[in-house]
Design a protein around this nucleic acid. Structure first.
Lengths: 208, 208, 208, 208
DNA sequence: AATGAATGAGAGTTCATTCAT
DNA sequence: AATGAATGAACTCTCATTCAT
């Protein structure tokens, strides 16, 4: 978990240094990518922000696309790393789900730029890299699905088990909507009122 | 409606010819864009598909971005033009909304590639162009909002009027989800079962 | 004959213009290549000598290696085009061979720089291109072989027919030696005395 | 003999170590050069094969070209070192020359890749280095020249002394041809039949 | 004496845009 | 109104060489 599946070849041998420099590269690239998009960001710009020469940058990656992959992976991993520990599995399924939604939606709010970027540039990744990123998204869905399934089992939730998966997707998408439709939603809602409104509706669906 | 707000300057004076050629350009560009993305499609390729020379292409646009704008506008307009006439406003609000959802979701299925493209490349547009595209999305939302409001007024729907807007967004996003999460959803659902599942849930929320 | 076997893709459509520009490119490149070698010559330098921009240069070729191929092909073709017409097939086989040697060796003298270049850079060509160049060399050998075979048939030459091929190679290589070993030979021989010395020896071998 | 004329500056002082390491460098480089050519081989690759770091490599040379020089020098020296001891100077000049040809041609066969490489990359050497390499070739020629001269003196060979030099060159070039024209010759001849055919012809020229 | 991470000039190539015809 | 050859800035990527450790 949190370790890239895809191996990127390097000239440099020192594993720790690679890890360190790669993180620096990601930190340098992510904002530029989010701001200007992948294609409009040049490798030189990244190197400049990275504080090292283009040559050095290329000691740690093979192609520009590798940087994109690193960035996408980083965003997803950050998401996972921060959401997972915050998920408290309590005996009270309603409370658990409510907490999960709250955590996830707040995370989306914090990382809205990154999330939008992820959707927009995933296409520029190679097939393999894209697949790996999708997998990460799927894993997140499964977490919600499991919470719902437990609720069904303990009688808290009334929906059919066959619908647990779809419901999990709905929860996630209605959260991501906060990032994608901010131009409309953020006129009428604050993050708190938005979470309140959506989770009320979602929970009532499950419990009635 | 269907007329671009943004004016693109041209060399050519004949208005009808401009309209005609621009449509040809869009037709040529749209598939290339959807397939390869905006940045990886070259103007030369578009001209080749367009069946005319690069020079001629540039008689009808000023920059490559203009083509992107034209394409985005075209996709949105197509959406609107096809969804709107299919919306039957009947006295039965439930039936009306059901029909609208059905129409809209089927349209999304048909145009899923275009929809995904729209989300991914909107960023490459200039600020003004982007704003215009958002407006088109907003208009669509308003249609759903209106249907809901009527239902509230005639007593079919039980939710608070303040929530009609959010509900409209939810309907749309849960439809678009069909396109964005096909990798997961289309394993378990056909379009018909998906529409059935989502609209059942949505309607029950509104009516109970 | 004289037409490249290998097709190089272009952006430009006008066949005559391609022919014209390619010749200009070859003319610009050949001296640079001979002087500095293929690898040390930059595409920019070639473009400058070519009198056009790098972009234009690349309208007529696909890669730098294409230029190398064009140059190698040009040198070989020039050789063939100038040697062949000068070959007089007379009934007197001795005279015919003497004339062929004289023509070929003088051509080598004229084109010594190109010849040396050809040997040195052929390796940088792709497999296919290299094969094509070898073929051209083989064709030239066959011309000498045929002259020798006729002489054997008409009784002028006493060697075994089985050796005609080897003899043809010897003739060519002893001519090319004038170019490759100029540092040694051109101290003691002029072109005329060299041709005289080598052809006397070669002919006496054949006739005795 | 075998000692470079050209001095290459180093960081390291220990003369024996320099000699040792340089031999390792040459051993590492020669195959890479022969396989891929000088320009396409990177210093990093050489260092890797050399089993030491790039930094260490650069302790023993100043530039990449130094490696090329070292390699060319090594090939030539190997040639000399192996051909010379095998040359038996007997009172029978015909036998001596026959033996020399046999030895030299077999050496060429063994080292054909190196020989071709030498011809192809010598140009990449600096003027001085190139001159030195030519000198080595000249020395080899002189050996053949001397054998021929002795034969003339003892009455075995009938040619004019003025032609001894040219004849020596011919012998060498007809041997090298075995390497350069393998694509054609090795279809019809084995090394043995080739040596037989060429030396028969050469000897008969000298003795008749 | 040995290391290998860092450098940055410079390479080949692309492509949106122009403009003479 | 139409053409398509010409442009050149800007891109990604490489690699011989250096130098702090």
């Amino acid at each position: 978990m949190g370790k890239s599946l895809k191996k990127i070849e390097t000239q440099v041998k020192d594993k720790d240094l690679i890890e360190l420099r790669r993180m620096e590269i990601v930190k340098a690239a992510v904002d530029l990518f989010v701001q200007k998009g992948f294609h409009k960001t040049t490798v030189r710009e990244i190197a400049r922000k990275f504080g090292m020469s283009v040559g050095t940058l290329y000691e740690y990656i093979r192609t520009k696309e590798d940087i994109l992959y690193l960035v996408c992976d980083y965003i997803h991993t950050s998401f996972g790393q921060r959401v997972r520990p915050a998920l408290e599995i309590t005996p009270d399924s309603v409370k658990t789900l409510n907490g999960a939604i709250d955590t996830y939606y707040r995370m989306i709010d914090e990382m809205q730029d990154y999330l939008v970027f992820l959707y927009q540039e995933t296409k520029s990744l190679s097939h393999d890299a894209r697949k790996y990123i999708f997998k990460a998204e799927e894993e997140m869905t499964e977490i919600f699905e499991e919470i719902i399934n437990r609720g069904i089992e303990d009688g808290s939730f009334k929906i059919d088990k066959a619908e647990a998966g779809l419901f999990a997707h709905n929860i996630m998408v209605l959260g991501q909507m906060w990032a994608f439709r901010r131009w409309a939603l953020q006129k009428h809602y604050t993050l708190d009122t938005y979470i309140e409104a959506q989770s009320t509706r979602l929970l009532s669906e499950l419990t009635s």
